[in-house]
């Protein structure tokens, strides 16, 4: 998604343009939804959180900054809201950051013509994922699926530069070694 356009629309939105607000929703909703699925399979919870993210930016529009990266800004807001809601609904009791669930595992089963190929590939994928901690899956997601910069990752995950790099390296090593040759 062209981030520049996202930013232009954001500036229009905080200046009071309602169409720009709608545009931001439509342009980002798919990504936000998929991001939400990484934390929970409860789609209602994701929708509620997306709603809160968008109503909150609407309420506060007059004093919002234009973020360096609009989609990262929305991701961070959604993550905060989702985790808050999950805590509230006591999906898990301990609000330890380490225990925030994050899974790269796809929630939609891939449709293959050949059933065997499907199950084999999915089995492999699941096996590799089972070796990675939630934090490792999360950082792989930001770095290689969303292609965010290390700085952005540090701010989303509250990590410093060095620990972010370490976490990436450790995760990559696990994937390399686990992948069948």
């Amino acid at each position: 998604m062209p981030e520049e356009e996202n930013k232009d629309k954001w500036a229009q939105f905080i200046a009071g343009d309602k169409e720009a607000y709608g545009w931001i929703y439509r342009t980002n909703i798919q990504d936000l939804y998929r991001y939400g699925l990484r934390f929970t399979a409860n789609t209602e919870l994701i929708k509620d959180s997306v709603q809160e993210v968008f109503t909150a930016i609407y309420r506060n529009r007059k004093r919002l900054p234009v973020p360096d990266n609009v989609s990262v800004y929305l991701f961070v807001s959604l993550k905060n809201k989702l985790i808050r809601m999950m805590q509230r609904e006591s999906f898990y009791k301990d609000d330890d950051l380490e225990s925030v669930p994050f899974s790269l595992e796809p929630t939609v089963e891939e449709q293959y013509i050949e059933q065997e190929t499907q199950s084999l590939r999915q089995k492999q994928l699941k096996e590799i994922l089972s070796l990675l901690s939630p934090r490792q899956q999360e950082i792989i997601y930001y770095r290689y699926i969303k292609e965010l910069s290390l700085d952005e990752i540090c701010s989303i995950m509250s990590l410093n530069y060095q620990s972010a790099q370490n976490l990436i390296q450790r995760s990559l090593k696990k994937i390399r070694e686990a992948f069948p040759h």
């Binding site: 939804y33 998929r34 790269l104 796809p106 929630t107 939609v108 891939e110 994928l125 699926i145």
Partner: peptide, 8 residues
């Protein structure tokens, strides 16, 4: 992963 997540 990407391929599969696109389907969500």
């Amino acid at each position: 992963l990407l391929q599969m997540q696109q389907k969500e």
